[in-house]
């Protein structure tokens, strides 16, 4: 029978592979698989971050003219921002204040996170929830709450008056830089506690015992093992607080007074009452560059510190 030789191969022995090029590609390349998995995020990030950012940069190169914009591209705004002392003063004040708030928050949150990670045996979750409790109310409410606490006839002042420690209310409490720093530190505490807790909780307890066994007392053990191993938490907590607080404008607007005004208030003014969008965009970008630069310096310094500690 001559036709047997030409008959198609037994489908059971040689099941025909359906060609699926995309699938084959995914199978072969891990990078492509990763990009496909990331694609929804990438789309959102492009639409929500890259495009607005491009628009912001473009606007910052325009010039405000009356109620409209001169759309010819120029760096005049940047030059102006650099020359006007008020812009730089507000910028550095913002960086200083949020820097202070960041340091205060991390320093205050670290012991709390440490306590929950190392000394709470049961109900850790409850402790975490309790610590993040302030976060459950709106940001605005928290700011107002501090207004009540720090105000001229607020909790602190009336308490001190009642005990006779002072005879007239302390005025520096409210509408000052310290009021802004205190409020920011409290409002953002949850952002510090959580990463700090996670990084501390991850530390293998036997490493601490090993350090003790090798001759370190509690302080040296903390400096040589606990702190370096929790540095990732410290870094992320610091960045998580520093970056958003620098541009914050609600707290300084409500609690800052003239002394406590920050760059965020100025930017808001440019986009609002002043109606100088190009200058607002310029200031935003300058602020972003400063934050990015400082974050890089901070990362570099922590790396250096890590080397020094060990």
């Amino acid at each position: 029978m001559g036709d047997t030789a030409a008959s198609p191969p037994d489908p059971l022995l040689h099941p025909k592979r359906r060609r699926r090029p995309l699938r084959g590609l995914m199978q072969r390349s891990e990078a492509i698989r990763a990009y496909i998995l990331m694609s929804p995020t990438l789309v959102v990030m492009t639409l929500g971050i890259v495009i607005p950012f491009a628009i912001l940069i473009t606007i910052s190169l325009w010039t405000a003219q009356g109620f409209g914009f001169d759309t010819s591209l120029t760096l005049n705004n940047y030059a102006q921002a650099n020359e006007q002392p008020i812009y730089n003063a507000l910028l550095f004040r913002s960086l200083k204040m949020s820097g202070l708030a960041t340091v205060a928050t991390v320093l205050l949150s670290y012991p709390m996170a440490y306590y929950v990670a190392f000394h709470v045996k049961r109900n850790k979750m409850m402790w975490i929830v309790l610590m993040t409790l302030p976060f459950w109310t709106s940001y605005l409410l928290r700011v107002f709450a501090w207004k009540v606490v720090l105000g001229y006839e607020g909790v602190i002042n009336s308490g001190l008056l009642a005990t006779g420690l002072i005879d007239k209310p302390l005025e520096f409490l409210l509408y000052s830089q310290s009021a802004v720093v205190i409020t920011l530190a409290h409002a953002w505490a949850a952002f510090a506690i959580l990463p700090l807790y996670v990084s501390l909780e991850k530390i293998d307890r036997s490493l601490l015992e090993a350090a003790t066994d090798l001759g370190d007392g509690p302080v040296m053990r903390f400096l040589r093992v606990t702190l370096p191993l929790s540095l990732p938490g410290v870094i992320s907590a610091s960045l998580l607080i520093f970056i958003p607080t620098t541009g914050d404008y609600i707290t300084p607007a409500l609690l800052g007074g003239p002394d406590g005004t920050m760059i965020g208030n100025l930017i808001q003014l440019q986009f609002g009452p002043v109606n100088n969008w190009p200058m607002g965009a310029t200031l935003s970008i300058i602020l972003m560059l400063w934050i990015a630069g400082l974050a890089l310096v901070f990362l570099f310094l922590t790396q250096l510190a890590k080397k020094k500690l060990t």
Partner: peptide, 21 residues
Amino acid sequence: VPPHERPVNIVFQNYAIFPHL
């Protein structure tokens, strides 16, 4: 005598090698 002042050293079950060093 606290552990860090005892004349003994220990090899842990999981070795406890410091990962950052």
